[in-house]
Amino acid sequence: MALKIIESCVNCFACEPLCPSKAIYEAKPHFLIDPKKCTECEGDYSVPQCASICPIEGAILDAFGAALNPPGSLTGIPPEKMAEAMAELQSH
């Protein structure tokens, strides 16, 4: 089982030094997790470290493709509010 970093990653480096399995590496266009190395932190921490510091909602997925930090969970911005604000901006 392994986690996955996807394109919404902003390359902030926060996760990389925390990984107990050295599974995270800098890559272009964004950081990646080596699925062969990732242990989901089992045995080291009770929660996956990368997903616990990552500031970007949706940037890290579990083995089933579900976001560990779903929309609204980190910023506190309700997803409908965000969508509203973005739609408002687009219309200008």
Partner: peptide
């Protein structure tokens, strides 16, 4: 220094 260890409500980490 790209990483941060908190979130502020006036910040967008992008």
């Amino acid at each position: 220094a790209p990483a941060c260890n908190i979130q502020c409500h006036y910040c967008n980490r992008k």
